[in-house]
């Protein structure tokens, strides 16, 4: 068979990567807060996570509008995005919108005073918001995962990978926010074990996804794998994602759990570790989107 033929398509670019990343961080921040509150881990972390979630997801949605070809010239067409929930994009925008509203209410309603009293927070609302937060995280993976024409994305490991990544980056953003607001890092250590589990799971799922790609019968999928591990994306993958985004947080948290690792729980090391997780999470989305584009629009005859 001859080489694939280029079709010169415009494809999804960096705004989509940022949008998927921010939506994931926002939903992950909310779940971190939800967990922290339910488990009584840290009130400060819970407040910061709730406050972060709504604005982050709103920012992501705004980026999506900017990325639409007709989003700025014909903004009223955005209404149509709510009319076809059989499309993963339409369904996702529904979930995202519901979550955004709930997260803003849960994060900020208590600041509003009504007849001299602060508005109460509703436990049921928090539960629904937490469920939709999981929906948002899975959606960012399924958006890509349902595209049969990009077999590199088209497997069940991808939504799981983005779910785990959203949880770990959301937690990192929340912990970092908490440290920045309070200039103290106490309470962060309580999340160390959870963090090890998340980063470990992320590495494992990523390995599974890459194994699928490496052994795929589709040439384009194998070239996606090649691009990530050996080609143009390899430096970002090995240095940015594997080393900075996965190995550093894993080692940090493993050492941090030992008595001698207490020094790591000072504000600056915590912030550096959170930054590593966030950078790694962003690069993960970038690599997955970019690698899926390798060979896309090429039609093999």
């Amino acid at each position: 068979m001859p080489d694939p033929i280029p079709a010169e398509q415009t494809t999804w670019g960096s705004l989509v990567v940022i949008y998927l990343f921010i939506a994931g961080v926002g939903a992950g921040a909310y779940l971190t807060a939800w967990w922290a509150e339910r488990r009584g881990l840290s009130d400060r972390v819970a407040v910061v996570g709730r406050r972060l979630a709504g604005p982050l997801v709103a920012l992501g949605a705004l980026l999506l509008v900017f990325d639409l070809g007709a989003g700025l010239t014909h903004p009223w067409r955005i209404v149509w995005l709510y009319t076809h929930p059989t499309s993963m994009m339409s369904l996702g925008i529904w979930i995202l919108s519901v979550f955004m509203v709930l997260a803003v209410i849960d994060g900020y309603a208590s600041l509003v005073k009504f007849r001299g009293r602060r508005l109460p927070r509703l436990r049921a609302l928090g539960t629904v918001a937490a469920v939709t937060a999981v929906g948002v995280m899975v959606y960012t993976g399924l958006l890509l995962g349902v595209i049969g024409a990009v077999p590199f994305w088209n497997n069940p490991a991808l939504p799981l990978l983005f779910l785990v990544s959203a949880l770990s980056t959301g937690m990192a953003a929340t912990l970092a926010g908490s440290v920045i607001v309070s200039r103290r890092a106490d309470g962060v250590a309580a999340f160390g074990g959870l963090h090890i589990g998340l980063v470990g799971t992320e590495a494992l799922v990523l390995a599974v996804l890459l194994f699928f790609a490496a052994t795929s019968h589709q040439a384009t999928t194998r070239s996606s794998f090649q691009a990530i591990t050996q080609g143009g994306l390899a430096p970002v993958f090995w240095l940015g994602l594997v080393t900075l985004g996965l190995a550093v947080p894993l080692v940090y948290n493993l050492i941090g759990r030992r008595p001698a690792g207490a020094v790591l729980h000072a504000p600056v090391p915590v912030l550096l570790e959170c930054a590593a997780v966030l950078i790694g999470g962003f690069l993960l989305r970038h690599l997955i989107v970019a690698a899926g584009m390798v060979g896309h629009g090429f039609v093999s005859i």
Binding site: W12, L68, G148, F298, V299
Partner: peptide
């Protein structure tokens, strides 16, 4: 009704759509 999201460009296995 098209918002220009280009999801269809990704989904078409024939590369038949142009933004």
């Amino acid at each position: 009704k098209c918002v220009g999201c280009q999801y269809c460009v990704l989904a078409c296995p024939y590369g038949a759509r142009t933004f």
